[in-house]
Design a protein around this nucleic acid. Structure first.
Lengths: 238, 238
DNA sequence: GGATTTTCCTGACTTTTATCAGTTTTTTGG
DNA sequence: CCAAAAAACTGATAAAAGTCAGGAAAATCC
């Protein structure tokens, strides 16, 4: 077995991912505070950050890599509710709500992720009006997005949902590249099916349809989006 | 046409619904503040409080009655995301997120509902740490609930979702009565279908199954829950 | 880099759920 | 209370998506 955890060290002040994150607005002193409290860990692909149903002990801040956030159905099937990337903050909602995690989180790549203990996060939250406002605004925004997700799940066909999901993944996987460049989605077919909310076989068949229609291309597991406009049309948005 | 709006007057201080609401913790001075700013209106059944896509001008606080909160699919089909009752606060998420409403709201009964202008609400939010914390906690909690809703929508059969929905409606419609008493759900079949995320015909057929299984009884539109445990079993939770 | 495991894929079939068309019942509003 | 409108219901049919089983390809890990 390879090493699973090492302790890379760097400060939040110098963290590139922070700018895009909820901590983006913290001022010098407060930033230093959390930078001192955090610990940073290298996770291998496939490791669990936290399990649904357990109590949150702090928050996770993704420095590098992707993390899938999912809920388990009673038959063990995963429903993926989010793919978080660089700058993503995980686990703070359960912490604020004072509830057990409603979801689990697992790394999709090798990841560098910092952990900020509960108390430090809560202190930052109460001492920084700005952080507080950003978090509140973010959460309210996410609820709007969830309303939309739920409506899509309830009313759209699997084909439409797949198109919508691929377009969203373009943003998730596209941040590193320039906008129009080819985006590679690197998820297993099963994970993709668990995002869309369908059976793996159905998903595979639809991917082939999209390939035949020249909306995407594939190389092994990897999916490239070829025709965003065509996908938007297949999604029947608006 | 009957009168659509009158202006009943009473203070937030004396409002019974407030105790169960997010404003429950406001202290005397702050309470007086919002009580002075609000206006109170009687809405007739079927009136729209706000439309998806428009800009929020303030928040609505339900004193009496039920309100359905829904999103429109592109073919005009409603997806009901919530039924709000006494003490429910509507429209504050879009306001905080500084976004247009992601949903619409329509009264299901004759309702008494107060309106608090944007500025007054935001001032209360920033002047009361307690209110701020309650709102933040509430939205974080709701996101956990939405994760669950989404997973149910994606993974459960219509039958299971109907059972889950009926059990949830028991809480919505049960507040006025003692716990074990018979609860009457007074929604159209179409609204119920739009909560469950299915076709009206399918919903009707399933209601008859539940009736045959003695889980519910019906009188015209009204549905009574007869066997909560049986419904929980039909829902296959856990 | 090669064996092993995992994932991907395909076809046949079943089940679930939606759709359509028409009738009956209930609710609504004057 | 009565007429009109809306909602509830029923049966037949179609479409969408899930399941199962087996084989091919790819990714993983020493």
């Amino acid at each position: 077995m390879r090493h699973t955890k090492i302790q890379p060290q760097f400060s939040c002040e110098a963290c590139k991912s922070r700018e895009h994150s909820l901590f983006g607005a913290l001022c010098g002193a407060q930033l230093h505070e959390i930078s001192e409290s955090k610990s940073c860990t290298l996770y291998r692909k496939g490791q669990i950050l936290f399990h649904e149903g357990t109590r949150p002990l702090g928050v996770f801040c993704i420095n590098q890599g992707k993390v899938k956030v999912y809920k388990l159905g009673y038959d063990g099937k995963e429903q993926i509710v989010n793919i978080a990337g660089e700058g993503g903050l995980l686990g703070y909602k359960a912490l604020i709500a004072e509830e057990p995690y409603s979801v689990s989180a697992e790394t999709l790549d090798d990841c560098t992720i910092c952990f900020l203990p509960r108390q430090s996060f809560l202190e930052a939250l109460s001492s920084s009006t700005d952080l507080n406002q950003r978090v509140l605004k973010q959460v309210c925004h996410e609820l709007g997005v969830m309303n939309e997700n739920l409506t899509h799940q309830a009313q759209r066909t699997v084909r439409e949902r797949l198109a919508i999901t691929l377009l969203k993944l373009r943003d998730t996987y596209g941040m590193d590249y320039f906008d129009d460049g080819p985006i590679e989605i690197n998820l297993t077919r099963e994970d993709l099916a668990n995002m869309v909310g369908t059976a793996t076989e159905t998903l595979i068949r639809l991917l082939h349809e999209f390939k035949d229609d020249a909306l995407i291309s594939t190389q092994g597991r990897k999916i490239q989006i070829v025709d965003s406009k065509g996908l938007a049309k297949a999604a029947n948005l608006y």
